[in-house]
Nucleic acid binder design. Structure first.
Length: 559
RNA sequence: GGGCCUGUAGCCUAGCCUGGAUAGGGCACCAGCCUUCUAUCUCCAUAGAGAAAGUGAGCUGGGGGUCGGGGGUUCAAAUCCCCCCAGGCCCGCCA
């Protein structure tokens, strides 16, 4: 039962306000002692205190509310805790992993990651993958038909640069390390050599020309090296716990957007300028015009994106397409969406750029030319190694395999949670000391809380009747209330992809549970109280697991 | 020059959409709890066992705040509007 919604219905009957407005007005009192929901009465009349008194008299209390208090201009509602305890806990234990799920039915495409095949994934991709995967999980949890897709930037001058370096200094050798790192080394090598020998730039340009002319040896080298890189990426995806249903390769359609540009020109939607380039006029959208096809007939970045949007629509007939791409490209997407709207594409309004801020280092922005880029794999290794040290010192007798297994899921939780606890729009600084911590507001803290709950349940499984009326402690009631709010929280997040709200909810829930853990002994001789508390532990465990699931974090039974 | 975004204690962050009661958290710092180890005690006798549940990645308390600055709207502003300041990203017929 959604208590807030019930309260809205109650208040809409007692006042002349619209139920949507009431829903927004209802808030949480600053202190638990002041009730569970508050209704400000300022809008009811000139004297809100009097209005509150009047309203109080008008309301007939339903069974889930035990008391209504006037506190100045506020009307505070106290939930009937024993009544809701049974309702909430039984609902959770019955719904299990479905608790909080909704019944949306949209078909949604989520595009994320978008790597280049000339070097390994870096810290920015880690944020992207964490966010993309979380959004994917969230939308699916809401009941949608969600398809995760990737875009592989597998052609272009940067790719040819690694290829050129390999041709020159690779001695035709095979990778002696993870393929993406192996190829990435040649990219770095190229950048270094370029400083000594500026002519290399031209050579790489020629190689790109050969590639575009479908020169056979060049294509073979390209295929071989891309294969190595993609194998490397696949390993990282697997480790990170993500998978794509479909991968779109730039090389396969980078020339195909031309028809869209020409067609737009024919229909008079686009214009030609004096250099013969095709231009989309965007003053209607109050943004700068955009070239969609060069004067020489070759396509540019946005040309292929036009094609790709169309292709995706043909492939999926989606109701919504999310592009999880860094904030640097905000302007690009603005133009892209505007152009598609000009073209009258029915799906133009269904496109959404889920933008996220950059991941910087304490020393500033990561720059591949200066070699300050932090590789995704390295950071995963580092997190895992730190966690391993911790696990080993706590449980030295565990098998080597088990230590590694735990270290891995703890390390992953730490890095993912670090990326997901802040608002995506904000740039973040990856400060190793703080980011690698396992204490405080971290993924491992939440995992630990989950493991603790599991541990109690192992020790004393619930048997027989529960007396929910016995759950009288403030820490118990606070916990129950929090659990009851999970579905509403999920719904709120979904509207604007505010993933950080899930993270903060989980922190609050974990904190609330740990408080309960310290103040209430669960295992006792009072069987019916014990069973009620065990139900509370189990319900908390379930909600923690459901929430962690949204973030793509493993909820461990032991750690 | 223009567009978009951000600015909340020493540091990091929630809240801003949808204005409401003392601005939530975390890190660090201080004071505790508790855990581990040591010590100690009890049982037992030459070697052990125990000292109260459920994993201390935990819990409790404390100090620390011009919500970037100024103006406006309002009974009420961190939240809405305007101006300014600082920082970031973007403004290629690059991707």
């Amino acid at each position: 039962m959604d208590f807030k919604q019930e309260l809205v219905i109650l208040l809409s009957k007692a006042t002349s306000l619209h139920s949507e407005d009431i829903a927004i007005m209802i808030s949480l009192p600053p202190d638990q002692k002041m009730g569970d929901y508050a209704f400000p009465c300022f809008k009811l009349g000139k004297n809100p205190k009097e209005e509150a008194e009047k309203l109080k008299k008008k309301i007939v209390l339903p069974s889930f509310i035990s008391k209504v208090d006037v506190a100045g201009p506020y009307l505070n509602f106290y939930l009937n805790k024993p009544e809701i305890a049974k309702n909430v806990l039984e609902t959770i234990l019955k719904s299990k992993e479905n608790y909080g799920q909704q019944k949306e039915k949209r078909k949604i495409l989520v595009e994320y990651c978008g790597p280049n095949t000339n070097k390994p994934l870096h810290l920015g991709h880690v944020r992207n993958m964490a966010l993309g995967n979380a959004v994917y999980n969230l939308l699916q949890f809401l009941g949608n038909d969600v398809h995760p897709v990737n875009i592989i930037n597998d052609r272009g001058i940067h790719i040819c640069q690694s290829m050129l370096a390999y041709q020159k200094w690779g001695n035709n050798k095979k990778p002696d390390k993870k393929g993406d790192h192996f190829v990435g080394d040649f990219y770095v090598l190229f950048a270094k050599a370029l400083k000594e020998n500026p002519a290399l730039k031209e050579e790489a340009q020629q190689l790109l020309q050969q590639w575009e002319n479908k020169d056979k040896p060049t294509h073979e080298l390209w295929k071989k090296m891309n294969g190595w890189v993609l194998n490397g990426f696949a390993e990282t995806y697997k480790r990170f716990g993500i998978a794509f249903e479909k991968e779109y390769f730039e090389s396969q359609y980078y020339e195909k957007g031309k028809d869209i540009a020409l067609d737009g020109l024919k229909k008079g939607i686009f214009e030609k300028d004096e250099t013969n380039a095709i231009i989309a006029k965007l003053d209607k959208f109050k943004i700068e015009d955009k070239v969609v096809l060069r004067g020489d007939g070759t396509s540019i970045y946005i040309t292929q994106d036009l094609y790709l949007a169309e292709q995706r629509f043909q492939d999926y007939r989606f109701d919504k397409l999310l592009y999880v791409v860094a904030s640097e490209q905000q302007f690009h997407f603005k133009q892209l969406f505007a152009i598609l709207e000009l073209l009258g594409k029915p799906y133009a309004k269904s496109l959404y750029h889920l933008s996220y801020g950059l991941v910087n280092l304490p020393t500033g922005r990561m720059k591949s030319r200066e070699g300050t880029v932090v590789d995704a794999d390295d950071i995963l290794d580092e997190m895992s190694a730190l966690a391993e040290k911790e696990v080993r010192s706590r449980y030295p007798t565990l098998s080597e395999k088990e230590i590694k297994r735990r270290a891995e899921f703890i390390g992953l939780a730490a890095i993912k949670f670090f990326m997901l606890k802040v608002d995506p729009v904000k740039d973040i600084v990856f400060n190793p000391e703080e980011s690698l911590s396992f204490e405080g507001e971290t993924g491992p803290y939440i995992q630990y809380t989950h493991a603790r709950a599991c541990s109690i349940l192992r020790k004393a499984p619930k048997k027989g009747k529960s007396n929910y009326l016995a759950l009288k402690e403030p820490s118990e009631q606070g916990l129950i209330l929090l659990l009851s709010r999970f579905p509403a929280m999920v719904q709120e997040v979904a509207a604007q992809f505010k993933i950080q709200v899930v993270s903060h909810y989980l922190l609050t829930l974990a904190q609330s549970f740990n408080e309960f853990y310290h103040s209430c002994p669960v295992i006792s001789d009072e069987k019916e109280l014990m069973n009620a508390r065990l139900a509370l532990v189990d319900a908390t465990r379930q909600v923690l697991a459901n929430g962690l699931g949204l973030l793509g974090i493993h909820p461990p039974e032991e750690m």
